[in-house]
Design a protein around this nucleic acid. Structure first.
Lengths: 107, 107
DNA sequence: TATATACGCAACTATTCGGTTTCACAAATT
DNA sequence: AATTTGTGAAACCGAATAGTTGCGTATATA
């Protein structure tokens, strides 16, 4: 089974969990309270997130806090990099089109 | 079934297809030649990418060119935005740590 | 020590995914 | 008109997913 950041963020519940613990580390129960799903379901998502190395456990007495590995999110950012150039190019081309239109206007 | 950009990029073959047609629009056969998978498998991925509104068909005679909707990729970028602030914060905190260490060095 | 709480894990189920095989159809070629 | 080529779609399969239920275990508390 695939275990990477893209797999991690493919599920909307997992994206919500990520966004939630990005603010502060939380226990599975605390996380589950934010959703309509069960603790066990959240627990399973947390396990997948762990396997994808997106979250990190931290034991504190009988509670376990799950913390986000923010660095991992950068991998998505890096993959997007190749498309940023295209955005810019397309944007410049649009500029050219607009410029051409403006020239025609002045004819 | 979920049909969003995150679902679209969850699969490595689909990510490769996206990167491939980002350069230039291609036909399903041309795309399939780049992979170890069958044309039909690629065709299925293209269908999903279409449903996710990541690619756009363009008929040209009996050939069909698939073109990337680059704009769609920005949705990922937008979702990442919330974590960029955290990167920066963490980075600043690291700066603080480094500054503190430097101070101790000079003691 | 007995009990409550916080949690992970295993077993089970329904659904989805990624793939193959097969078939149908439309456009180009003969 | 018959054939080749480019393609989509349906039927099917094994594996993974997302969820549930039930149970075991460790920590805290009475």
């Amino acid at each position: 089974m695939r275990r990477d950041i893209f797999q991690a963020v493919a599920d909307p519940t997992r994206r919500a969990i990520i966004a939630l613990i990005a603010v502060q580390a939380l226990t599975p129960n605390a996380i589950a309270e934010h959703f309509d799903t069960s603790r066990q379901a959240v627990s399973k998502h947390l396990r997948i997130l762990q396997e994808c190395e997106v979250v990190k456990k931290e034991h504190q007495g009988r509670e376990i806090y799950y913390e986000l590995e923010v660095e991992k999110m950068k991998e998505i950012d890096q993959w997007l990099e190749q498309f940023r150039k295209i955005w810019e190019t397309r944007f410049n081309q649009l500029d050219d089109v607009l410029a051409t239109l403006k020239m025609k206007e002045n004819e």
